[in-house]
């Protein structure tokens, strides 16, 4: 046990920084977790577990810039949950209320969102994680590669294939209509 772990002043400041990290990053992390695990696990559980893991080993990390650390932990936890044998599929959520004004247009938009979400859910786990980190978190390929434990060319390939597969899946949906 290091002296840092027992120093009450350092410990208090670390806990304060941890709380700030939770407040700042949990919203986006919940969306990331939801995008990665889809309806195969509870994204709230994923984010909570990720933060608990960080809290347990909080003395190891630098909490002044926790964004990358939190993101990496949540993504790893989400992928870990997906690797576990699946017990049940959670009830599929409907898309949240859209931004359009007319009910007809809102319905169509909502339907499109559901279809895109379904298509994203059908992507392989690594493709989906890479795509979410790239397009939603706006992370550069190098950071995505670091977060997912892959090389930059691999990440580039995953994102490219994810987009291509999504386009093909949604083409089927458009053709059905």
């Amino acid at each position: 046990m290091s002296s840092d772990e027992t120093n009450p002043v350092i410990e208090a400041s670390r806990e304060e920084l941890f709380e700030r990290a939770v407040q700042q990053h949990s919203k986006r992390m919940l969306a990331v977790a939801r995008a990665i695990v889809g309806n195969r696990a509870s994204p709230e559980d994923v984010v909570q577990q990720a933060f608990m893991n960080l809290y347990q080993h909080r003395h190891r990390y630098d909490w002044r810039q926790p964004g990358g650390l939190v993101r990496r932990t949540v993504v790893n936890e989400a992928l870990r949950v997906l690797r576990q044998p699946r017990m049940s599929v959670l009830q599929e959520e409907t898309a949240e209320e859209g931004q359009s004004q007319s009910p007809g247009k809102r319905l169509m938009e909502s339907e499109t969102i559901i279809q895109v979400r379904r298509a994203i859910d059908r992507l392989p786990d690594n493709f989906r994680a890479a795509l979410v980190l790239c397009e939603y978190e706006k992370m550069p390929y190098a950071q995505i590669a670091e977060s997912l434990g892959a090389t930059i060319p691999q990440v580039k390939t995953w994102i490219h294939r994810a987009r291509r597969q999504l386009a093909e899946m949604l083409k089927e949906y458009v053709n059905q209509d």
Partner: peptide, 23 residues
């Protein structure tokens, strides 16, 4: 379109507050 989809995944304030309480 994917941006809209990802934004729709963001949690409501209540579920976020619940998550904070749990953490």
């Amino acid at each position: 379109v994917r941006q809209i989809v990802f934004s729709s995944l963001e949690p409501s304030d209540e579920s976020l507050a619940q998550l904070h309480r749990n953490i």
